[in-house]
Design a protein around this nucleic acid. Structure first.
Lengths: 200, 200
DNA sequence: TATTTTGGATAGCGGTACTATCCAAGTCAA
DNA sequence: TTGACTTGGATAGTACCGCTATCCAAAATA
């Protein structure tokens, strides 16, 4: 398959494919001559993932990291999750105060060193954002958040396929990133329905 | 208070404040002469909200819509939620297939016309993204998502303050936007903890 | 009066995700 | 074999976004 065919099958313009090649998101095709290469179904699938990630607001740099994680799966499933999270974690903005975040996640069973610091920093930054805007979350609502994310995470981790390492990688990496917009969108729907229930 | 003082109090550079004024994110100060204006605490608070929103990845255009919603509260609390959601909803990408989304949210008690179409389109787009990447969500996990967002939404709506319209607006608008990064970050922590439980 | 500072306008910057153009080497139908 | 077309590859340009820098005359301050 040559580049134009790949373009047609994946629905991605040729110049964009070239761009992804330059950015090392897409591996080179098999060279049939010094200036000719051919692509396979692997490339089509890869392009689909790339478009899904970038279309979900993941940056090119993050996408590259995610794809690297997909290609070089870490030894254990646990490390894998860390890699996936690190790949898509919002850029560490340096000095954040982790104390409040630690206090909060201790209610999830967190203890010092039991999860990636970058992920914890994400919680800290989110709390800071709320704080800077002068927004406080009531204890009832916060409890609902904690219970819910715990429920979600347990179901997700429970569902990690253990038969194939490749399937596990795919599940964890894509699930981390691509499910986010779904959860946010579902929350909005649920809010509107709950609002209709209460205010009609 | 003049602009340099406002800048110092809010921790926002003067040129940036001027930019927000140009973009109508920040209302003009009270004019004391044709080329002089003074700002108040209102402006400081407003700047805090602006920075919190923009810092959470909300675009300037969206931020303007959110602030407009804060300034001109719709009549009912329910309309208000719709306005807030519409303001921050990802840009409607046109033709999406709502059928799968409708089937899904019916499990939340959704019925035709019971929520904003833009919000439903958000669910549809998220599902499409997952689909394009070839990612499927098991029924158990999806059930966890639905139960959880329902639990979250009910707690949130339950907590809407009814004493003051202004407080309700603030709660709904900021809660919609600023809580999103918190939920995503908490999910990651919970995933790491659940993963440690299962694999660690 | 001399020195800032102000509001306001305009232009530029740095980053991101492409997109367009060009080129020589390769492919393919006639 | 010839001539139109396509390819991989490099380079440059585009559009948008959130600022940031510069300039100006009027106003405030020392």
């Amino acid at each position: 398959m040559r580049i134009s065919e790949l373009s047609a099958q994946a629905g991605v313009p040729v110049p964009t494919i070239k761009y992804y090649l330059r950015e090392s998101l897409l591996p080179e095709g098999e060279r049939s001559s010094p200036t000719q290469a051919s692509y396979g179904d692997r490339h089509v699938g890869r392009l689909r993932i790339i478009r899904a990630l970038i279309g979900s607001g993941v940056s090119v740099a993050e996408t590259r990291k995610v794809l690297t994680a997909l290609d070089d799966p870490p030894a254990s499933a646990h490390d894998l999750l860390g890699t996936a999270h690190a790949a898509v974690a919002p850029p560490a903005g340096g000095d954040v105060d982790l104390a409040a975040a630690e206090r909060l996640v201790s209610r999830l069973g967190w203890e010092r060193g039991k999860c990636d610091e970058a992920v914890l920093a994400g919680v800290a930054r989110a709390l800071e954002g709320l704080d800077r805007a002068g927004f406080t979350i009531s204890d009832e609502v916060m409890t609902a958040y904690l219970d819910s994310v715990q429920r979600i995470a347990r179901a997700e981790i429970e569902g990690v396929p253990t038969d194939s390492a490749e399937a596990a990688v795919r599940y964890v990496v894509l699930g981390t990133v691509l499910v986010e917009p779904l959860l946010l969108a579902l929350r909005r729907v649920a809010e509107q329905l709950a609002s209709a229930e209460r205010f009609g």
